[in-house]
Structure formats: structure tokens, C-alpha cells
Write a protein that binds this DNA or RNA. Structure first.
Lengths: 329, 329
DNA sequence: ACCGAAACGAAAATATCTTTCAACAGTGAC
DNA sequence: GTCACTGTTGAAAGATATTTTCGTTTCGGT
């Protein structure tokens, strides 16, 4: 619940990006040292969207103002912004904390930076929503633009320390389980396919019961990954919990870093949340975001295990070659 | 010479330090405001050089530090910067004034902006390939950039006429089969999931033999889609050929519009082919491209069948709601 | 060596940010 | 419906940071 919020307020300098990890030792030493999460520079708009659901009404108003007019807000003091949004100074500070800054002062600094970037980058044409009567060409353009935006947001908001830790764990894993349901299930399978290609042992059970059965087999040295946009998909959380309790290293790929799933995750990789609409279900951009994260994991692992990954990759390529008809002209 | 300094010191309220006031009641673009020069955004280094002669020794030290490391200085308080340069707070404020800002606070804000600009300015260096020893942050940036590129290429290269025709066929189809193997198989499943969600009948057999078995059942009024990057995957072409011969409308989503698969396709949707490398297999960008095409198909169909699609979408959403744990927040 | 003007910094004064705490609103149990 | 409880909120106290004041120091000229 709001315990997340409370925590943030209570222990400001806290290194605990992931609550789950607090009870256990993190594999990579550098992880917690640098972990407090580098206050985002340009990833602010994305962060606002990601965290918006876990904000209270007043905080949302503040976040909205900040995301909507960085330059304007940067010129305001706490009191000014509080007045503008019809809230109190305390709320503004709370919002700043929630967004990952030590206090309003730093948020303001970041805001100034963002404003400068926007200024130089020139306004990137606002995405209007897709309408029922949009011509097909517009649909293509809007979707492409949106997905590009999602990619940028995801890349900006991805915690490279967590990512590095996740890669390290995966690269040395005895075996890996990937859990995902629905659209996220496809992402899970995608990752699994990739891992298999570089000679790692990976499974992506699609049946929730099988997933739990699988999870029970895991132990220290194994890795379990849960992929869920909402962060609260029971069928995915359950196997991760089991894996967590069996001592496996657990990773959560989610759009809600404050969701239940992170309780059992040693490392949390945050995917970006784009606005959705009737014609554009959340599944669309969350999938794009998840896939980018998965690709990053994959390439990271491939780098680390290059000696064995490279031959494995070409071997699987060779093996499939004959399944393609010879000529294509 | 130092008369500038004097002036600045003497008349402090001249330019209206109070931001709040200036934001409201100033009706006329203040004449005096023009003269004092708007606080420089990025021209800071230049300003330092220009004004250096009229600075005292201590102030020069401060100006030098500021120009040399904007990012670093932006992180410091007055006291900190005074300490770093071996001067006093008063001197720092005096320098800020000389540079055209109402006070240190505003200089600091400008500094943050400058730092952000510099930061983003050095981004475009990511066009190179991913190397084995790239730091993880570079991997993220490069992958995101590449996928964005792929999206742009795909959107640009997509034939909207073909797309429109494909959408029309799908929207009116009695049933739809989607064939894909390996990475493309996941895309096929993704499309299938989406179609099911809006109440259409779709299958994505993953077993090639089952695919053919399925294809045999198709007839005019049905649609078959083959997804293959290479355009020459036998296991995918075969069912499409069967469907084609049974009279179904056939669609090919491929990166090779000249490949064998198009022989049996009524409509061809071209995905873009990005360069691949050892660490970045083709599967990665082709998948991104294919997914965009699939999304376009989906949204197009949803538009056409809006009356029935919208309720179906919300119904499936409702049905799944209870599978998510109550809430975080 | 002495004078005056300019430069400088310590500390007071002010503005700004942060924390605390008590009151309030929403929610679920009975 | 009422009660207890948890979570949210803003006012004001408390802590920091910035700005101003003002006396001391430095430097150049006589």
C-alpha cells in the first residue's frame, strides 16, 4: 500500500530500491552502493506516467503541472508551486521525493535541465489520440510515433545498475525461468527463445500451475524472471514468490515498480507506461517497452558470455538454414 | 571597468528580483528588462569570457569553475561553491549578479539547464554498432535508438493501400489463421490474441503440421496471414499456399517482398530490414517491425468494427480484472 | 609611511525548503 | 448506519540555503 510512500519519506537516503532485496544479499556489490537511483534527467515525463497510479490526488496535480510545464515550474519556489496547484508545500516535497529526488530543490534543478533540453530539441509534435475515423496512414504514423516515444521513455527510465545486476545473475545462472501471462507471456517466450539461442537453459511455462511447479525446482544460483505490466498479476507473482523463497535470484520486469510483484524481486526493471486509449490498449506500448528491456538483458548477457554465446548463435543459425527455401531470386 | 560591478551591487531591486510579481502584473514588456539582458541560457561560457576582464580575481575563480564544470557546480550550494573556489558566499553571489542573474539561485538553475544540454548533445554518437565491451548504458541507448530507427523505417515503407486492403479482408473474415515460426511465431500469437480480444475468430498454430491441417479448412471469406522475416521459411509458406489454393484471402508480412512467400499472397506488407550484427541478431529488429505492422492491422480492424470491438475489449478487460491483486497504493 | 578606494569574507538577516503533527477524508467491519 | 482505522493533507515549526550588511584587509598612489 502506501508503505512505499511512507518508506520513501522515512528513510530518505535509503539504498533499498527493492524491498525484497533488503532481507538478502545482493549478488553484485556495486548494486546497492550506487543504487539510490540517479535522479532522472530527461526521463521525467516518463517517470511521472509510471508513478502516477501510485500517487494521491494532490500529488498527481503537482506531477501534472511539473510534467506539463517544466520551464514554468522551474521558475517557481515550493510555495509558488504549491499555490499554483492548490496544494501545500509538504505535498510538493512529497511528490519530488516520489519522483526520485532528495527534495524539491533537486527536482527543480532537473526541471530546469529538462526545460533546456526541450528548448533546444524543439517541440516534437504532440501525439493526438487515434480516432475511429483516422485514415489508415495516420494510424501508422501515430502508432510508430507512440512506440518510438515508448522506447525513448523506457531507455531513459531504465536503471542501469539494476539491469547490470540482472544481467550478471542471468549470465551465471544454472537455469532460468521466465513467467508471463497474456501479452507478457509472449515477451517471456521471446526472452526464453533468445536465451536458448546462446546456450543457456531457460523455460517459459505458460500454464500458471506448471509455472509454480517449475518454480519449486529452483534454488540458489537459478534465476526467475516475472514479466507483468500491472505488477499485480497473481498468476505471475505466485511462481516468483515460490522461486524467491527457494533462494533463486528473482527479477521483476514491470510497469509498476511499487506493485506487489516487487516484494519478491531482488532486481526490479521498470518498463514505461504510455497513455492508452480505447483503440490503443495498454498491451501495445507495454509490450514494446518490455521487449526493449528483454533485448537489453539479452545483449548484456551475450556480451558477458561472448565466448560461448557467439558459437551457439551461429550454430543455431546453421541448423535452421535448410528450413528456408533456397532461392529468393 | 568596475563601474558595472558597482551598479549591479547598488541597484539590486532594479530588475525585479521577485519572480512572482513579474509573472503577474507586468503589463508592458518592461523597458528596463530589455537592457539588463535576459539571463543567458547556453551562452554562459561566452559571457564568462566577455566579462572576465571586469571581474576581480576571486570572481574570476568562481566564473572559471562555473564555466568549466556546469554540471558539477549546479550540484553545489552557494557555500559549497564558495568553498570549492576558496572564496566566500558573497563573492559567488556577486559573480552570479555580474553574469546577469538575479542571484545565485538562478545561476544555478541556468547551470543545470546548460549541463542537460551538454549531456543530450553528446548523444548522437550512438550510431555505431554494439561492441562486446560496451558499458550497459550504451547498450540500452543503442538498442533503443536502433528500434526507433526500425519503427521509422517500417512506417515509412509500409504500403497503406495494401494495409487497407488487408484490414478490410480481416475485418470481414469468417475466421483467420496466422502462421509464424520462431520469433515470428510470437508475433503471430500476438496478433491472434489481439483479434480474439475484439471478438474475431483467430488461430495461430505453432506446429507446422497443424498449420497445414488448419489451412485446409479455410475457404473464400477466410483470411490467412503468414509472418516471416526471410520470406522463405518453408514451414510458413506451406500453410499459406494451401490457404491460397483453398480460396482464402492471403496476406504476407515479410521483410523480403521478393521472396517465395509472396507468390501465394494477395496482399504483401513489407517490414523493414535493419542491419544486424553478431550481438544483435536479425530477430530483434524484424520483430519490432513486424509488431508495428501487426498493431496497425489491429487498430485498423478495431476502427472498422468499432461497434463490436469496443464492447468486446472492455468485456475481456473486466473478465481479467479479478486476476490482479487488489492494489498497491 | 599614510590615505583612500576597492575587494573580500564573516556573520546577521531573509528567503526557501523540509519535517512534524494534528485534523480530515475515505473505507471496510460490524 | 456507526465506528474504528488507515491513509492523506496542509499549517506551522524547524532546518538550510541565499542574500545582505558591514567591518577588515589589500593594493595602488603620493
Amino acid at each position: 500500500m502506501t508503505q512505499d510512500v511512507k518508506e520513501i519519506f522515512a528513510d530518505r537516503r535509503g539504498t533499498g530500491t527493492s524491498r525484497g532485496a533488503s532481507g538478502r544479499s545482493v549478488a553484485v556489490p556495486s548494486a546497492q552502493a550506487a543504487a539510490p537511483a540517479p535522479p532522472a534527467p530527461a526521463a521525467l515525463a516518463a517517470k511521472v506516467r509510471t508513478l502516477a497510479p501510485s500517487m494521491t490526488r494532490s500529488m498527481q496535480r503537482v506531477a501534472e503541472a511539473v510534467a506539463g510545464d517544466p520551464a514554468g515550474c522551474a521558475a517557481l519556489t515550493v510555495t509558488g508551486l504549491a499555490g499554483l496547484t492548490g496544494t501545500s508545500e509538504a505535498t510538493v516535497v512529497r511528490t519530488a521525493r516520489l519522483l526520485g529526488y532528495p527534495g524539491y530543490r533537486d527536482l527543480r534543478l532537473a526541471l530546469a535541465g529538462l526545460a533546456a533540453q526541450q528548448e533546444s530539441g524543439r517541440a516534437p509534435a504532440i501525439t493526438t489520440d487515434i480516432a475511429v475515423d483516422d485514415p489508415i496512414a495516420d494510424v501508422v504514423a501515430k502508432l510508430a510515433y507512440d512506440e518510438q516515444q515508448t522506447l525513448a521513455d523506457t531507455a531513459a527510465g531504465l536503471d542501469t545498475v539494476q539491469l547490470g545486476a540482472a544481467v550478471a545473475a542471468l549470465a551465471g545462472a544454472r537455469r532460468t525461468d521466465v513467467y508471463g501471462i497474456g501479452a507478457s507471456g509472449l515477451v517471456a517466450q521471446d526472452l526464453t527463445q533468445k536465451l536458448l539461442r546462446i546456450g543457456l537453459i531457460a523455460h517459459a511455462p505458460s500454464d500458471p500451475h506448471l509455472a509454480v511447479t517449475n518454480a519449486v525446482q529452483l534454488r540458489a544460483g537459478d534465476v526467475a524472471i516475472a514479466i507483468t505490466h500491472s505488477g499485480s498479476t497473481g498468476d505471475v507473482i505466485e511462481p516468483l514468490r515460490v522461486a524467491f523463497e527457494r533462494g533463486a535470484t528473482t527479477i521483476a520486469v514491470t510497469g509498476r515498480p511499487d506493485g506487489p510483484v516487487t516484494q519478491y524481486a531482488d532486481h526490479v526493471l521498470t518498463t514505461s507506461t504510455a497513455r492508452e486509449s480505447e483503440l490503443r490498449p495498454a498491451a501495445m506500448s507495454s509490450r514494446t517497452s518490455q521487449l526493449l528491456v528483454v533485448d537489453c538483458l539479452f545483449v548484456g548477457i551475450a556480451q558477458r558470455t561472448y565466448e560461448s554465446a557467439a558459437p551457439a548463435l551461429s550454430a543455431s543459425y546453421e541448423a535452421l538454414a535448410h528450413r528456408h527455401r533456397s532461392g529468393s531470386r
